[in-house]
Amino acid sequence: MFNDKTSKFLLVAGLLLILGGAFAPNWIVNQFMFGFSRALAILGLMVLWRTGLVSFGHAFYFGLGAYAVAILDIKLGVTDVFLRLIAGALVAGTAGFLVGFIMRNYRNIFFAMLNTAISMVLFGIVVKTEALGSTDGFAISMSTILGVSPETKYPLFVIITLVGMVAAILVNYYLKTTFGKLTTAIRDNEIRVEYLGFSVAHAIHLKYSISAILAGGAGALMAMSLGQVDPESMINWTVSGELVFITILSGPGNVIAPFIGSLVFEVLRTYAFELAPQAWQLIMGATFLTIIFFIPGGIWSVLEKIGGKKNDK
């Protein structure tokens, strides 16, 4: 599992980041926490994209993960970071497994928009339900780590970085298994996969469930990083759009790409907002157009060209 360049790079980079984070100012630590939290969801979307599927509704799972943390906190007083993370991933994964029975039968625009529809149903329910915080959402108490209350956000940053590193290594390994290799095979030719004796529907269902677990985990980590959840920033269709934006910005070439893409997105959005508070979307849109027209393989493809080497799939 750790024998390839990507896994080794992830291990070294993760540990260096953890060390560096100890000396970095808070705003940088925050940017990394938000970026790496989202990167988890992008990893899942990358697996789907390699299969030829794009979801415009993964905020559904992102939101489920975030709200699982909030509800556990408010109703049961659960503050442990690991319990919160597991709960977020589990709730979203269960929902993804159930919804997957429908989604595995659809492709292209129908797949994309059915996901949007489901996320908007959840958005509507949350907005209209007082018990779920309605439009205001919930504030979340600081996460504890195995019973210890940290004084800064650095320990949470360490955990998010470690979780991201482990998830990326696992997804990297998965992509090298037969299941993983079937991603591109299904995108290329579903008929041949079926005639080789493998169920395309089962394979897509598994990939969809994996993407839901990762998006749920991402939502849980984001909720803990931000210290609050609300439907606008966790479940709305714009969140799904952001996730797709970052996926395309990152490129599908390697599991490292979502982490770089998410960080670039965080920095880009922060500075776009600072430069043009009334028109920051213009900068984001222009960036998106540039990516699609000039670097359809995303940031990773640029890095590959600079490095002059083939990616480590």
């Binding site: 090298k176 298994t177 993983g180 290799k181 598994l206």
Partner: peptide
């Protein structure tokens, strides 16, 4: 393919 942990 039935064994998700098998490297291809």
């Amino acid at each position: 393919a039935l064994d998700a942990l098998s490297l291809m």
